[in-house]
């Protein structure tokens, strides 16, 4: 009985699961975290005195491809949540795996971009653009990495106990909130850094 109560979370007078509310509060605090990084980037935008400058090295088609990958990972994630909520364990596992692979692909794009910029002479201490760019996109990439680990743990959990289906749909739902948040943050970063000219 106690274990069942633990698994289903504590029901509150609001009728809102406490775990889900906790995730939303965490995401609200993350808004401020990324808001600070984006503000810093905007403050120093166009302030670099030495190159490489953004217009010289940013590869917009390449980043558009990685943005597309992340958007599609949001689609697979929401389908994983759908599978979990409707008791379709196979769909949930397949979509979780697809989301993990797409997340790793996005990280691969980012590692390639960072290495490429490094070869072109842009490092963390090169100029204001380098400092703010690496800080902001690096923290975002870290969030994607944490999300991938989170999803891997859910996938392994569903394989081992075969119980991460309809009964524990909320765990997948909560992971989905985190993943979609990482996606919406990238939507903002992609526009501000890559699409809007200096």
């Amino acid at each position: 009985m106690a274990a069942a109560a633990h698994e289903s979370g504590h029901h509150t007078s609001l009728g809102v699961d406490n775990r889900k509310l906790l995730m939303w509060i965490f995401l609200a605090s993350e808004c401020l975290f990324f808001g600070t990084l984006i503000s810093t980037y905007l403050v120093f935008k166009g302030q670099s005195l030495v190159g490489p400058f953004p217009g010289e090295i940013l590869d917009i088609p390449l980043t558009s491809a990685s943005t597309f990958v992340l958007l599609m990972s949001s689609l697979t994630m929401v389908l994983a949540v759908y599978g979990a909520q409707h008791g379709r364990l196979g769909l949930m596992r397949g979509m979780l795996l697809a989301t993990i692979l797409l997340g790793l692909t996005f990280l691969g794009f980012q590692v390639y971009e960072f290495r490429h910029f490094g070869h072109l002479g842009l490092n963390l201490g090169t100029n204001q653009f380098g400092a703010t760019f690496y800080l902001m996109t690096g923290f975002h990439g870290t969030h994607v990495g944490v999300g991938v680990l989170y999803l891997i743990s859910l996938l392994i959990g569903s394989m081992r106990r075969s119980g991460l289906g309809k009964e524990r749909a909320l765990w997948v739902d909560t992971a989905g909130l985190y993943w979609h948040f990482v996606d919406v943050v990238w939507i903002v970063i992609f526009t501000i850094v890559y699409l809007i000219p200096e």
């Binding site: 698994e7 289903s8 979370g9 699961d17 309809k166 524990r168 749909a169 909320l170």
Partner: peptide
Amino acid sequence: MDHEASAGHGHEH
């Protein structure tokens, strides 16, 4: 236990 998923939300899917 089957109702847990929706009960946890406080809403329907």
